[in-house]
Design a protein around this nucleic acid. Structure first.
Lengths: 219, 219
DNA sequence: TCCTTTCCTGAAAGAAACCTTAAAACAGCT
DNA sequence: AGCTGTTTTAAGGTTTCTTTCAGGAAAGGA
């Protein structure tokens, strides 16, 4: 498992690198945005960790360019206090996760592992889970026509099945930016998606975990 | 929102405290490093403000000890020295922000608010103790579904197993602030958690230490 | 031992989170 | 502009969690 870590604070970078290597990862370290981008575009990594504040080219820019070039490596963004508000727009731009500084290395490791073990075929048009087949090109779930928002939501669940997904996450990822979405948007869509699952006679269902979120499960 | 402010200059301390309280914060004041550390380690604050020059124990030391003990409360450092190097070394040690004296109270208030509303990293790593596995991602304990409050309480115990945890601590940490909780809340939940542990057939149990609190133990 | 305090526990009331439905607002077409 | 399908809003109903209450059990002190 090979990881690219772009970070200019050498002190931190070395510490984290050491920790990740202890976990059996191979870690490439880059201390500025330009080199970081170049490495990231090589598309050989299993996961890319980007600090936001970087010399020459910001982490946000790297992420944007990666996705433009259709490099779909999982990305985790790191940020310090002042950049915190941008969390949502990062998820929007295709980051897979986000971690505020300071963080525990153990937590970064946990998140990297979570990203790496999740199914690879994410941006390919078909995602499957159990008896479900989501065809993003045609916007159908097992043949049933979906709306744009339905596709986005179902994608989130199918990308990480059996995993809790919070309303905040969905709002940030799908309604984006200033997150001025309401919980009820989601409740409303969940309701419709459940109807759909029933119609399809899928074994999978969306379970609610009160106070925390939802998860797609077939247990 | 509860704030700890460790400052030996009484004049300044009182003024700042007053201002913060006007903003609706609850403020605990400590005028020396030792007491400051003790309070900080209680881990019930939403933010800790540390002067650096303190009698008995410096702010830097308090910060270091906090992070050692894995207390991740946001910390703002105050100091008369405005040199860049000190700033950096504090941020390295895990401070979240830094303010040079003299400062305007409004500025401090603004920074505290910024820190507090910052989205917390949700710790997704599993916590284990003996035969127990708390999966915070899915809100389960050895597979059993938990409610939000149950997760919070069990987290406290599993973070510090074999350690006495007082009701006051739990109330402050989970029900927050002004002690608007009743002891019986906890007794009630402890009861349910014990049932759960039995159901799981765990060797661990929650022992009562009369008059003082509870602890998670497997002895 | 008896009395007081503290704690436990189950059941019921209350509160909060969530679900569902239908209608209004909106956006993209022709 | 009018039509169509999608998204948002709103409201009331439902479920589940949290708090409250009350009676009983255990612990400790006199």
């Amino acid at each position: 498992m090979r990881i690219l870590y772009v970070e200019d604070a050498t002190f931190l970078a070395e510490a984290v690198k050491h920790n990740l290597e202890k976990q059996g990862f191979t870690v490439d370290l880059t201390n500025n945005g330009e080199d970081g981008l170049e490495n990231a575009l090589s598309d050989i990594y299993d996961c890319v960790v980007l600090d936001i504040m970087l010399p020459k080219l910001s982490g946000t820019d790297i992420l944007k360019r990666m996705r433009e070039k259709n490099v779909q490596t999982p990305v985790i963004m790191l940020s310090a206090l002042s950049e915190v508000e941008t969390k949502i727009s990062h998820l929007d731009h295709g980051a897979d996760d986000y971690l505020a500084k300071p963080f525990k290395t153990a937590e970064l490791v946990a998140r990297i592992k979570a990203l790496i073990r999740r199914p690879k075929n994410i941006d390919i048009s078909d995602i499957t889970y159990g008896d479900l087949v989501l065809d993003k090109t045609n916007a159908t779930l097992n043949g049933e026509q979906l709306t744009a928002k339905e596709v986005e939501i179902i994608t989130e669940f199918m990308k990480s099945p059996e995993t809790l997904i919070s309303k905040e996450h969905l709002l940030a990822k799908i309604w984006g930016e200033d997150g001025f979405g309401e919980d009820n948007y989601i409740e409303s869509y969940i309701s419709r998606i459940r109807k759909l699952l029933k119609k399809i006679h899928s074994k999978a269902r969306i379970a609610t975990i009160r106070g925390l979120g939802y998860k797609l499960t077939s247990k």
